[in-house]
C-alpha cells in the first residue's frame, strides 16, 4: 500500500516536471512530429488487422445469436456499430496500444536511463523529463483519437464484408442497421475516453521507464509493469467516465 502511494506520488511529481515550460520549442516540436510518426503510423497496420477481424467476428456472433424472427436483421449492424463506437474501438484498441506503445516507451526511456543518456541531458541543463515525455504525450493526444476513429470505421467495414460475402444477412440490412438511431454523442464520448487513455498510455510507461534502475533485466520489468498498470488504469478510467458521461 505504501509502495503504491509512493508510486502515485512520484508519478504526479514527474508530471509536474513534464509540464514545465519547454527549454526550446523548436526542438520539442521536432520531437513531437517524430513521435507522431512513430506512435501513429507504426500502429496503423496492427489496428487495421484487429479492427477488420473483430468487426467481422462481432457481426457473425450477433447474427448467430439472433434466433427470433421478431428481431430484425438490421439489429446486427446496429450492434456492431454500437460495440465498436462505445467499447471495442476506444477501450480494447487502447488496451492493445498500451501493450504495443507502452512497452516501447518504457523500454526506450529505461534504456536511456541505464546508458546515462538521461544524465547527459540533465548535465546539459535540459529538463529531461519534459524533453523526453511531453512530446510523447502531445503526439499521443493527437494521433490516438485518429487511430480510434480509423478503428471504428474499419470495424464496421469488417462487418460489412461479412454481409457482402455471406448469405446470413444482406448489405442493405447491415447498412440500415449501422445508420439506425445514430447518436453523435456516442462518438464524442468515445473520443473523450480516448484522450484520457492516450494520456495514460504514454505517461504511465514513461514514469516506469524514467525511474528504471539497474540493467537490462530491470528494463524488461519496467516494461511489464508499465503495461499492467496502464491497462488497469485504463479500465478504471473507462468505468468512471462511462458512469459520468453515459448514465
Amino acid at each position: 500500500m505504501i509502495s503504491a502511494l509512493h508510486n502515485i506520488g512520484s508519478y504526479f511529481l514527474l508530471l509536474a516536471r513534464v509540464f514545465k515550460k519547454p527549454d526550446n520549442y523548436k526542438l520539442y516540436w521536432r520531437q513531437t512530429v517524430h513521435e507522431m510518426v512513430s506512435l501513429g503510423l507504426g500502429s496503423l497496420g496492427l489496428i487495421a488487422i484487429i479492427s477488420l477481424f473483430m468487426g467481422a467476428v462481432v457481426t457473425l456472433q450477433t447474427v448467430s445469436a439472433i434466433n427470433s424472427p421478431l428481431i430484425p436483421l438490421y439489429t446486427v449492424g446496429y450492434a456492431t456499430r454500437q460495440s465498436f463506437i462505445l467499447e471495442l474501438a476506444p477501450t480494447v484498441m487502447c488496451l492493445i496500444l498500451a501493450g504495443k506503445i507502452g512497452s516501447n516507451i518504457s523500454s526506450e526511456i529505461g534504456s536511456m536511463r541505464i546508458t546515462e543518456q538521461i544524465d547527459a541531458l540533465e548535465i546539459m541543463g535540459i529538463n529531461s523529463a519534459s524533453y523526453l515525455i511531453l512530446p510523447k504525450i502531445i503526439a499521443a493526444l493527437f494521433t490516438i483519437p485518429i487511430i480510434i476513429i480509423y478503428s471504428m470505421f474499419l470495424g464496421i467495414v469488417g462487418g460489412w464484408i461479412v454481409g457482402a460475402y455471406s448469405s446470413m444477412l444482406s448489405v442493405s440490412e447491415y447498412v440500415y442497421g449501422i445508420r439506425w438511431d445514430f447518436q453523435l454523442f456516442h462518438v464524442v464520448y468515445a473520443l473523450i475516453k480516448t484522450l484520457f487513455f492516450a494520456f495514460v498510455i504514454t505517461s504511465v510507461p514513461s514514469y516506469y521507464g524514467y525511474y528504471t534502475r539497474g540493467g537490462a533485466l530491470e528494463i524488461g520489468k519496467s516494461s511489464t509493469k508499465s503495461v499492467v498498470y496502464s491497462s488497469i488504469t485504463i479500465l478504471i478510467i473507462n468505468y468512471i467516465l462511462t458512469q459520468l458521461l453515459l448514465i
Binding site: 534504456s111 536511456m112 546508458t115 546515462e116 543518456q117 544524465d119 547527459a120 548535465i123
Partner: peptide, 11 residues
C-alpha cells in the same frame, strides 16, 4: 561538458 563512461550518445 561531460564525457560519460559509456559515451551516453543519443541512440
Amino acid at each position: 561538458g561531460m564525457l560519460f563512461q559509456g559515451g551516453a550518445l543519443f541512440d
